[in-house]
Amino acid sequence: MAVTGQDVLKVAKLASLAVDEGKLDALARELNSILGHMEELGKVNTERILPAEGLSSGGQRLRADHGPADALAHAPADFAPEMRDGFFIVPRLATHEGSSERTP
């Protein structure tokens, strides 16, 4: 299962990480080297083993349907890169590039 530069590119896209074209092969080599050590696991027979799903086995503790939520000591405007009228602002999504600004 050797990882190629193209695989790295695909994974980087999934992870929303810009990767230098020139570094793809080096990264692929690194991942291959690490994943090579993982092949060890193939030696273990896990046919009848239920994978561990977290370690708290007793089931989930539930919360009553009331607040308050944990408070914010300062408002989002204090840490957000860009806010307007209480909204977080991001560059317009490519799929909505055509939308025009609503005229009041």
């Binding site: 929303s16 989002p76 840490f79 957000a80 890169p81 991001v90 560059p91 317009r92 490519a94």
Partner: peptide, 19 residues
């Protein structure tokens, strides 16, 4: 880069900003 922390703007819109 949407709600807090570093944001690096990009010419490639939102996807570019993420990356």
């Amino acid at each position: 880069g949407v709600r807090y922390g570093l944001r690096v703007p990009s010419e490639r819109g939102l996807a570019g900003m993420y990356e």
